[in-house]
């Protein structure tokens, strides 16, 4: 039974990574296709790095992710603390439901409805609208990451801080924020990945003058096979691998710290 499980697992993992390996393999193909490997080359990487348009798009993508994740984290911190402080159960529950609506809404719905919103408000489609949209879908996940941390904070910590003479600001800055820091960090990371990963929402709300990587890849892929995409994939995979490992070590270290000596 165990070996059966093992082999099943291995097969699935091979299937999961096969397409990625396939992409990476052909990124080194000197031929122009993803079907026959003619010889080794780095020319596709070269053309990615010399394509100034692509570089700009890459920078756009990262900038949008950092700015939107940062702002979403700030809004989310305030939101989570506010939700935590609400005493009326009804109100809290309805606000949480609205928060969750955004999380479960399919991207097309978010994209299309934000497109309507921006048009109605007269906001021109471009960098600004994309950042706003990314903030829009990142806030609720930040809130969800922080809220449990607030909930497992003992209320006596707050009483103790007040008791020792702390002002509201001191309580926030010296007790609440340090306590929910892991949640804030996790929320920021999630927001970052959401933003980097997003295609559908951006596709709806971006204008002709502004593009991010996923939209650009879509446009390229619709035109057919281009090994430049393979090269980009490889680079993305490497970056993701580094970030994932970093994230893994941060969170596992944090959990070791928390679960350590008791």
């Amino acid at each position: 039974m165990k070996t059966l499980g093992r082999s099943y697992m291995v097969v699935i993992f091979i299937c999961l990574y096969l397409p990625i390996a396939y992409l990476i393999f052909y990124s080194l193909n000197s031929g122009g296709t993803m079907t026959s490997f003619d010889g080794f080359t780095l020319e596709h990487y070269q053309s990615v790095f010399t394509d100034s348009r692509l570089i700009v798009i890459l920078l756009n993508t990262v900038a949008v992710a950092l700015v939107s994740a940062g702002l979403a984290t700030l809004i989310g911190i305030g939101g989570a603390i506010g939700l935590y402080n609400i005493r009326m159960k009804r109100l809290k529950q309805s606000l949480l439901s609205l928060n969750n609506v955004m999380i479960v809404s399919p991207d097309v719905i978010i994209g299309a409805s934000l497109l309507i919103l921006f048009t109605v408000l007269g906001i021109s489609l471009g960098a600004f609208s994309v950042i706003m949209a990314h903030i829009a879908f990142s806030v609720p996940i930040v809130v969800l990451m922080i809220l449990p941390k607030l909930q497992d904070m003992k209320s006596s910590y707050l009483d103790a801080a007040r008791d020792l003479g702390a002002s509201s600001f001191d309580v926030l800055w010296r007790v609440i924020i340090p306590h929910i820091k892991p949640g804030i960090l996790a929320g920021f990371f999630m927001a970052l990945t959401y933003s980097l990963d997003d295609f559908a929402v951006t596709f709806f709300v971006t204008g002709s003058g502004f593009s991010v990587l996923s939209v650009e890849i879509y446009a390229m892929a619709r035109r057919g096979i281009s090994l430049e995409i393979n090269a980009i994939s490889t680079l993305v995979f490497l970056v993701v691998l580094v970030i994932a490992l970093g994230y893994y070590f941060i969170t596992s270290r944090a959990s070791v710290k928390r679960g350590g000596i008791t």
Binding site: K154, S156, Y157, A160, R162, D163, G165, A166, S167, H179
Partner: peptide, 21 residues
């Protein structure tokens, strides 16, 4: 007059020692 403005201090039942300090 709130807790932070009284010359009274409390030892809490669960001690409420800040875990991050």
């Amino acid at each position: 007059i709130d807790a932070n403005r009284r010359k009274v201090n409390t030892v809490f039942q669960d001690y409420a020692l800040f875990p991050h300090l």
